Amino acid sequence: MRISTTIFLTDETITPVRLARELEARGFAGLYLPEHTHIPVERTTPYPQGGELPREYGRILDPFVALGQAAAVTERLGLGTGVTLIAERDPIALAKQIATLDHLSGGRFTLGVGYGWNREEAADHGVDWATRRELTHDRLALMRALWAPEPTAYEGEFGRSVRASQAWPKPVRGGAPRILLGGAAGPKLFARIVAEADGWMPIGGRGLTESLPVLREAWEAAGRDPKALQVVPYAVLPNAGKFAHFEGLGCDEAVLQLPPGDETEVLRVLDRYARFA
């Protein structure tokens, strides 16, 4: 099993360059970064984990800039987002960012896609909360049009379209980078995964014994290769039994949560986790 990591990188933590180098030196498989453009102070949305929203949420570095730095100082380390809030981004510009990062890193990028949880943040981007999922997939389809091998037009349902265009570079593997959808288990999410993604990125990995067979059944019913489905438990705390459980379920990658600490703290945790990598 490949062991990757995720962390809230901020202006107060270890730097992307130092972290990426240390991850690769210790044999970790990848680095996934979350995103929030901003956290409105006046908000009513509760923190999903309960209690006060941790300080790091309002200080997150832009994941694509940080991953670009990580790509430049590594050769093998996988690079990903966990997750990109596509509904809050301009899809034409985002398609270019993703394709460029994937090209410059030699195809090491994974696009984790999420729908978000902070209503106030989304509202500042002009997102109608009730249709954010549909908007996300509409914009993903527009990006796929720009990544297509031949100029391809796309007429969106939410007022964003693109003409058939020259748009290079392309994702290295062709068509799109690896795409994993985040979100809670359920028929709507699983239908989207089957139709539009390479797999699922469940937070924590709890309940996979029950939910994964349901996803596999939907995947195979759609005629997709059973061996191609990728399920990547995300933001997990490590122990050998947990990894054995994931591996027994057919997962070949898991993502460990690192603390949003300074260099000393993060490297100390990496040394402790290195035995799993």
Rank of each mutant, 00 (worst) to 15 (best):
R2Q: 13
I7W: 02
F8Q: 02
L9W: 06
T10E: 06
G27H: 07
Y32H: 15
Y32W: 15
H36T: 15
H36E: 03
H38L: 06
R43E: 03
T44W: 07
G50D: 10
P54K: 13
P54N: 12
R59H: 09
A70C: 15
E75V: 15
R76D: 15
V83A: 04
A87V: 02
E88M: 07
P91I: 12
P91Q: 06
L94S: 00
I98M: 10
F109A: 12
T110H: 03
W117H: 07
R119P: 02
E121R: 02
A123Q: 13
D124S: 12
G126Y: 08
G126R: 04
G126I: 09
D128E: 08
H137K: 11
D138I: 08
A141L: 03
E150I: 09
E150M: 09
A153E: 11
A153S: 12
P169F: 11
K170P: 06
P171F: 10
G174Y: 09
I179M: 12
K188H: 14
K188L: 15
A197P: 04
G199C: 10
G205K: 05
G205F: 11
E210T: 05
S211R: 14
L212Y: 06
W219T: 06
K227C: 10
K227H: 01
Q230M: 15
V236T: 05
A240D: 09
E253C: 04
A254W: 04
L258N: 02
G261V: 09
T264D: 03
V266S: 01
R268K: 02
R268Y: 03
R268L: 00
Y273K: 00
F276C: 06
